[in-house]
Write a protein that binds this DNA or RNA. Structure first.
Lengths: 332, 332
DNA sequence: GTGAAAGCGCTAACAT
DNA sequence: ATGTTAGCGCTTTCAC
């Protein structure tokens, strides 16, 4: 084992040409079983690991699918990723992940970096990009799928839900349940376009019912139970008459629930609560919180499927809008 | 824009040789400022995206760091990843992630796949591998860092905590608090070696105090609040006299807490609870749960730093054992 | 400071 | 079914 063996070493040991060895290792059809076995055997004995870099350069196909997400710490994008992995299972494609930290310039950088690896596909969270980012996506020599959101103008393919609709549906449901003094707690909007769209849809639903938001609070940084709990306490301090709060995430809504538990407020009688995403976490909580399933796993699956299908074919843009599913739970 | 521009196009447009263009784009020192500007300009105008595949093949250096984790859905590995990203920030190295699903054969596959991309480093969760996986790691032509755990024999570098100690410390603490009828709820051990080590340490601490576990329950599949709640209910049904339960994860412990809330048990008076990991989630819960900080972010940071430092230098294996930090919270 | 030649390790395209 | 010839797009020498 003085040096890493390369294909020619395998070929030599098996007594065939490089080409035959190459074909055998990749499972091409036109190799006799006997030859294939010899080659496999030689590769095994040498501990041969193919050099995909050389392979990709030569074949102009990397079998990598770039996945660009804002963060991995939030429970939401990992689920998309698992959908992607599931759909790619059994295919030669492998996902590789880039994280942007909710920064569009960084996103463009990540996309650029990914393109430099000649991916077979690109899956990007969100429809909002920097000028540079969008240009890169438009010029990408591979299928591009924007995921999570369908409210906007995709570069090409798109799989997601309408966050506006998700917010609107929840607003209507809350109004229908008779709540009138309604607050909203969400992330500082600039960094989260989808949360902003949910808020827009939500307020539109209130407006349609002749209502308006009684209170709004935003925070920067990630969602967390603690944050949700603190902001809920603060909001109720200022607006003791609120009868419902809509949160931009389940995690925050759980915080709200924790505040209610701690201060003896009954949910939903004293205060109704609703979140977003349908995190698994909600199951097991003392009160089943109202939420909207954003179908993250399914979105990932479908996006990956689009990449698989459009690899060769010509690409007529596919737009797949899933329906956000509202679960009223027991908290409205 | 009929075809993607390549380096020679940039060079031609800038009126220099490929070599000069290459050097200018990579920021090599021996290029005059004027030439560099011309090249940069040309690249910008053409929308040039370098082909790292060609670059890596030629230079035998990919600037990729492979990160192999069992799962991304659990809140624990994303945190390690963020530590890795943070440490790699500003360096030319980029992490790329592979997920094994807690399956050692799959792990070997993933490692093999990663090696085929000629990474500059490999960061792998855990010390347990299949024969094949271990061989691959041993022969890897790049720094290899095993993370999370230090109870075992690393292939090379290693950063983590002793899970045995984490379990032992918690066991001692629980005993010191006067608990005597103690249960354990954890994942089915085969798939989670670290949880098993914590249990070993935990029972050792009990034994040292002349105690033994009064009840044990294991489950397969991921940790979840719901699972924790259900298993806690079931365990208390069978063993109503328990005064403490140790869980293999915070998520499960939260489930236990939720059960207590729902059934009017006071924590810790009726039942003491302890988890593991120190998830952010714990902050904001009505009772601050006892847990152990596994320093996941820091582990990621250090692992990445090792890769950065050992890139060139000769590799004398570094073993960095961090101390698991126990927080008793209010639940013991 | 810049350029020319050679080749990284593999595979596509054509033989045979 | 197997082999031969080129060449992917870049970087590493080594010249100048």
């Amino acid at each position: 084992m003085t040096k890493k063996p390369v294909l020619s070493d395998v070929a030599a040991r098996a007594g065939v040409s490089m080409m035959t060895a190459s074909r055998a290792l990749r499972g091409a059809a036109e190799v006799s079983d006997r030859t294939r076995e010899k080659v496999m055997q030689a590769a095994r004995e040498l501990g041969y690991v193919p050099n995909r870099i050389a392979g990709a350069l030569s074949s102009h196909a990397s079998n990598l699918v770039g996945v660009v997400v804002p963060s991995l710490e939030s429970l939401v994008f990992p689920k998309v990723l698992s959908g992607i992995s599931a759909a790619l299972e059994g295919s030669p494609l492998k996902p590789f992940v880039g994280v942007t930290g909710y920064d569009l310039d960084e996103e463009a950088e990540v996309i650029r970096e990914m393109l430099s690896w000649k991916p077979s596909g690109l899956i990007v969270a969100g429809l909002e990009h920097s000028e540079a980012g969008r240009r890169l996506l438009e010029g990408a020599p591979c299928p591009v799928v924007e995921v999570m959101d369908v409210d906007g103008t995709p570069v090409s393919h798109c799989v997601g839900i309408s966050h506006r609709q998700a917010g609107h549906d929840m607003g209507r449901e809350i109004v229908a349940r008779g709540h009138r003094r309604i607050g909203f707690i969400g992330t500082k909007m600039p960094q989260d376009f989808r949360a902003r769209k949910r808020l827009d849809g939500f307020t539109a639903a209130l407006t349609a019912a002749g209502l308006e938001l009684a209170a709004t609070d935003t925070y920067s940084g990630g969602s967390s139970v603690e944050q949700g709990r603190n902001l809920t306490a603060a909001m109720l301090e200022r607006h003791p008459d609120l009868d419902c709060i809509y949160y931009s995430s389940d995690l925050m809504a759980i915080g709200g629930l924790m505040h209610c538990l701690a201060s003896g407020l009954s949910v939903p009688d004293d205060l109704a609560l609703a979140g977003f995403n349908d995190l698994e976490l909600l199951r097991g909580m003392p009160v089943r919180l109202a939420t909207t399933d954003s179908h993250r796993h399914e979105i990932g699956r479908r996006a990956a499927r689009i990449v698989l299908e459009r690899r060769d074919r010509d690409a007529s843009p596919a737009i797949e809008a899933l329906t956000p599913t509202l679960s009223p739970g027991e908290s409205l």
